[in-house]
Simulated assay, not measured.
Amino acid sequence: MIAPKFKAQKDSFHAELKRRINDYFQQEGISTTGNYKLYIKAAVLLGGLLLLYTHLVFFTPPAWLALLECAMLGVLTAGIGFNVVHDGSHGSFSKKKKLNEMAGLCLNVLGANEFMWNTKHNVIHHAYTNIDGIDDDLDAGPFLRLCETQKLRKIHRYQHLYFWAAYSMLFFFWVFFSDYQKYFTKKVGAMPLKKMKASDHISFWAFKVSHVVFFAVLPIITVGFLPWLIGFLVYGVVVGFVMSIVFQLAHTVRETHFPVAEETTNRMEDEWAVHQLKTTANFATNNKLVTWFSGGLNFQVEHHLFPKISHVHYPALSKIVAQACADFNIPYHNIPGMRMAVVSHVSYLKQLSRA
């Protein structure tokens, strides 16, 4: 499938929005990257993961506590993905390139691959959000139907009931299948993968092997196969579900759109920034705990418009973006609460379960 082109405008909404955002940073005299609050949060999340891993593997806590710690390890892994990896991969964690690279590499340590993620997320998803056949995030078949242009199967009749089980498998699918599929097919969905350098190949296999060693071999040696298997399943299910639900609430809800390119010209109806606003939604933006833990991904609109700006600035930027949307009569999707966002997502899945 050939990637579509977006509408070009001389005096675009995007240009005006960038001007207003640039003015904000100049007036405040602050950097667009992360600050001490982000670095403290990163230290808390990474330190917590290291302590829990050490206690689980080398100190053998009682079964009830071990299961609880495995679940917490999953929560911390998702939190590191949201706050450290995500900002690092977008180059917004720090002014220093090396720190951004180190933050992004945390994804490799946790079992996935940053090279594949950058292509899937930064290059494809951010450019072609909610465009079926291009945005790989919509490809959850055959188990889930995430937009009307996808084939309706009998199993989809119940997707609003079993979606949580599918989301819980994300971590296992990503780490043990999806990365390898992209590696060997050299594609992300229908889009070609950027050519990998020798260092990328070495990094891919070295981190995949080290992940197996630290998250499988070593725990099996210290606690035994069955305790490890149960603990790893709990850990992976928590990581998968938490990450899935946060990302899905931003794009697959009743409020968002799934535009299709004009058939003869392969062009989208809107300019890129307007497309992002129509296909993306914020949620629970007044909930400080959700904002802290999700790395500002509940401010998904601001993130999609300005992915190279750290999430610590999104609450302030949201006011500027919302005002600009009101001035230009462009929709700004903001679901007030987490519960309302989940209800919207489930309702949307139920809507797609029927012809």
Rank of each mutant, 00 (worst) to 15 (best):
K41R: 12
T256S: 01
V209E: 03
F173M: 13
Q27H: 05
L51V: 12
A42H: 10
M1P: 14
C147L: 05
E255K: 07
T279F: 07
A165E: 10
T129V: 14
G231T: 07
A71C: 12
I245D: 00
H121N: 09
S347H: 11
H313P: 01
F173W: 15
L76R: 08
Q150N: 08
L45M: 09
A316E: 11
G29F: 04
N122E: 10
N100H: 03
A166H: 11
W205R: 07
S318R: 03
P336S: 03
V175S: 04
P331A: 10
F115Y: 14
S318L: 02
I202W: 14
K120G: 13
W164S: 14
D23Q: 11
D132W: 11
L305Y: 04
R267D: 09
G47C: 04
I202Y: 15
H86W: 05
Y39V: 03
V246Q: 05
M243C: 12
R339M: 13
G295F: 10
S92H: 06
F59L: 07
P307S: 01
L138R: 01
K97N: 11
L233C: 15
G104I: 04
V237S: 11
P192F: 03
N282A: 02
I40T: 11
K154L: 15
F163V: 04
D139I: 08
I202F: 15
G295L: 09
H251I: 03
T279A: 13
F59C: 03
N22R: 05
V346C: 09
L146T: 03
F283V: 07
Y167M: 10
D11S: 10
V57F: 10
K96M: 12
R19C: 01
V290F: 10
M116Q: 12
D132H: 12
E101Y: 01
Y162N: 07
T77W: 03
P61L: 07
G231P: 01
F177S: 09
I330L: 11
W164K: 07
W272Q: 08
A316M: 08
N286T: 05
I309V: 13
G133H: 04
G133V: 03
D137I: 02
K98E: 13
A140W: 08
A324R: 01
R20L: 13
N130C: 06
F163Q: 05
P4H: 03
D136N: 13
M116L: 11
W64P: 09
F143W: 15
S310T: 06
L305G: 05
E271Q: 06
C147W: 00
A43Q: 10
E148N: 07
V274D: 07
H121W: 02
K97S: 12
N130L: 00
S353N: 02
A216D: 06
F258A: 08
S210C: 09
M338D: 00
S94H: 02
L105V: 08
G236A: 13
K98Q: 14
K187H: 14
V342M: 13
V246P: 01
Y39W: 15
S310W: 00
L349M: 15
M116R: 03
D11I: 00
F241V: 03
A326W: 06
L52G: 00
I202K: 14
G236P: 00
L352S: 01
A127H: 14
A190R: 13
